[in-house]
Design a protein around this nucleic acid. Sequence first.
DNA 1: TTAAGTGCAAACGGTTTGCATGGAT
DNA 2: ATCCATGCAAACCGTTTGCACTTAA
Lengths: 123, 123
Amino acid sequence: MTPQRQLVLDAVGELEHATPEQICRRVQRSTPSVNITTVYRTLDLLEDLGVVQHTHLGHGAPRYSTRPQEYLRLACHRCEHVIEVDAGELDGLSTTLRAHYGFELDPTHVALSGLCAACARNE
Amino acid sequence: MTPQRQLVLDAVGELEHATPEQICRRVQRSTPSVNITTVYRTLDLLEDLGVVQHTHLGHGAPRYSTRPQEYLRLACHRCEHVIEVDAGELDGLSTTLRAHYGFELDPTHVALSGLCAACARNE
DNA sequence: TTAAGTGCAAACGGTTTGCATGGAT
DNA sequence: ATCCATGCAAACCGTTTGCACTTAA
């Protein structure tokens, strides 16, 4: 664990759901010399170690967070709003997909896309 | 409908699940002068018209296809393999998310992520 | 004669690479 | 003496923008 790696890990935990760019800016507040390349490399490393994870919200950069929380993300593709819900909502689907296709669903890696309540009303 | 637009639409239908780059190369086989900028602009237009749609498979460029088929995509994040299954698999989840969060799920816009049967076995 | 569609080049956001330096073991 | 982590610059992929040119209403 180098100082840079600790700083990146701390930033991921403090920000939650931040992009690599945001994480880098946070780290640079205390240590401006840290390069974004190191942030990318460290995020990959921490993810291999299983202490952080990333989620894709459709477009744009992935979001990194510390592992323990297992949320399902619902991303509105109109207003970009993200709702986090209990990953247990997917239990039924998980079981079905495993039974029918042998597919092991990872609820955290990709957000589900759709319209949030507010945007759905204005359709 | 300009000639370029017809060519792009044809290419989307012939290729199915192709990236903008692949669509562009296909169009250029018959009409090399067509620029990739035009492909992007045309894909946006055709999507607004509802005749094509795109799906995000986690990483990389989005995939475009002609609209009628309403498939749910299951993307393996280990081997990149994509399984297409009946979007009806999501009916239960759709209902739950609408009831609990007012969220209108769009099953086609983002692929679900996980491990395919083969990769799950080798975990 | 105006508006819309196109091609081209340049910029863009996000990410990865090559390479030389620097510290730890 | 070696190895790995870092910083920096440059390349990269996918996409968007500005602008001048053409074409069709």
